[in-house]
Design a protein around this nucleic acid. Structure first.
Lengths: 145, 145
DNA sequence: TAAGAATACTACTAATTTACTAGGAATTTA
DNA sequence: TAAATTCCTAGTAAATTAGTAGTATTCTTA
């Protein structure tokens, strides 16, 4: 299974915004430069985060983006689902109607277990936790995330 | 993240072979019929399992495929990696050289944790465990897996 | 009030991957 | 030798990814 750049870039962008929380908006341009990714592409990713209500935008000069909630209130499941889509896509895991044998299907249970395991990692963490881990690391360049 | 039909079909095929373990070879045709999937497609998936040493083939009339080891000796990690590829693909998780900031990168740690969580589910299980679960279910049609 | 800086919106595209289909060669049994 | 089976290779339509591109809109400030 492959994690899309969408999710990886988007997560890093959010982390940057969290590091700049309460210090005014951060611009796409700035983040893109730090992360060394395409301006225009990041624009689209951040738009997804905005639609999901995770960030707020401020237009015009000195505008940019800010987190719409405190880092500790942004759960990683929500970020992941916004950027990547469902955690593990196997139709039958979420939809009982696709297969008559839903209740008894053994492989389905396996996929469900994996699904739960991933959810478990993500739902126990917030962007705030990532920030804390980053702080503990205390390195030369705090923008290398 | 999406689980490919490759992995889903392949896992079900292996489970069928495990249910028929010690009762002679099972043909592609038969499995494909039971599972309601394309003959030719399944042929290719089983070829992958063969290359990985998980099944053995017998050519000619009355031929088919058999597990190359006892179900309890076939770990699900191996099956998954054979069919789906690396568990969670993020270059930096496995390759330390892609990113200078490897040691300190927080998002990388997150992906690693997810990777571990999935591995943990899979490496603790064998095809034999799936067979046991299936037996416990004891349903009308034992081929509905 | 005009210029400029930023986001917002929409469309396009090359490359890759997926999920097959198709055809015939090789092998084995009866 | 005929038939049944696996083995091998090639092709392909559809979807997805990872962008690029252009222009419209909004807001600030001189």
């Amino acid at each position: 299974m492959k994690l899309s750049t969408r999710t990886r870039y988007g997560m890093r962008a959010l982390l940057e915004l969290a590091l700049a929380y309460n210090s005014g908006p951060l611009q796409i341009k700035t983040i893109a430069q730090h992360q060394n990714i395409s301006n225009k592409y990041l624009e689209q990713l951040v738009a997804m985060l905005k639609t999901a209500g995770l960030v707020r935008s401020i237009r015009g000069p000195h505008g940019g983006y800010v987190l719409s909630k405190a880092p500790k209130d942004i759960n990683l499941v929500d970020v992941f689902k916004t950027l990547e889509g469902p955690v593990l896509t196997v139709e039958c895991v979420d939809d009982e109607t696709v297969c008559e044998n839903h209740a008894d299907c053994i492989t389905r249970r396996l996929w469900s277990e994996i699904n739960e395991a991933i959810l478990n990692v993500l739902s126990n963490k917030t962007i705030g936790d990532l920030v804390e881990m980053n702080d503990k690391n205390k390195q030369k360049n705090s923008y290398q995330i």
